[in-house]
Design a protein around this nucleic acid. Sequence first.
DNA 1: GCGATACTTAAGCTCATGCTTCACCAACCA
DNA 2: TGGTTGGTGAAGCATGAGCTTAAGTATCGC
Lengths: 107, 107
Amino acid sequence: MFQALADPNRRQMVQRLSEGPASVSELAAPLQMTLSAVVQHLAVLEGAGLVRSQKIGRVRNCQLETQALRAAERWISERRTLWERRFDRLGAFLAEQAAESEEENGA
Amino acid sequence: MFQALADPNRRQMVQRLSEGPASVSELAAPLQMTLSAVVQHLAVLEGAGLVRSQKIGRVRNCQLETQALRAAERWISERRTLWERRFDRLGAFLAEQAAESEEENGA
DNA sequence: GCGATACTTAAGCTCATGCTTCACCAACCA
DNA sequence: TGGTTGGTGAAGCATGAGCTTAAGTATCGC
């Protein structure tokens, strides 16, 4: 899924879809590439569960699937807070050490 | 930066670093590959600003840089909430339509 | 029905990515 | 001081990602 978000064109597609549903050609419009390539990118996004789409008549309607985005967000968030919490504990420890050192000086 | 997080081995390194700082060989230990390869992955992570490292003696000490993680998190979050808000408005609109329809039936 | 539209599928091409090996250097330590 | 440990750098290789072209299919509007 991070793999899917790794490509800037795909991120642009996600960006576009975050503003509302779109057809394949609407997604393709701002991207300087073939419709074929866009469909391939779309397949990656769908494979990652980031986008859902259904064909109505001859146009395929695509929309964002927030579940997957939420999962990615959570993964990052968990790692980040884990590290930050560790950092805070370290800070507290150092502060404590400093305080003890102060005491020793005082005694 | 999403590019950097795209590789599962690199994510594992980030995971490891979220639990605390580590040397290059410590990062390499659980990964079934050469130290050389690990250093290359590390370079990618550093290039993306996800990791900072400094060499002390002959061992390189690596630690997570939460700024970049935070940025990635924000990007996802913004897209997601943008879409979800749209979704909510749509729900509200449909509810309103339904209410109007009720009124018409009543009238 | 017929042309235009909106994809779809397959094949192939190119370049980046992820890895390995090998040679090397620097620092630690017995 | 010499061997071991920890890391660096360059070269090369295999695979896969991203793109294109080309040919095909299914709707839509007239």
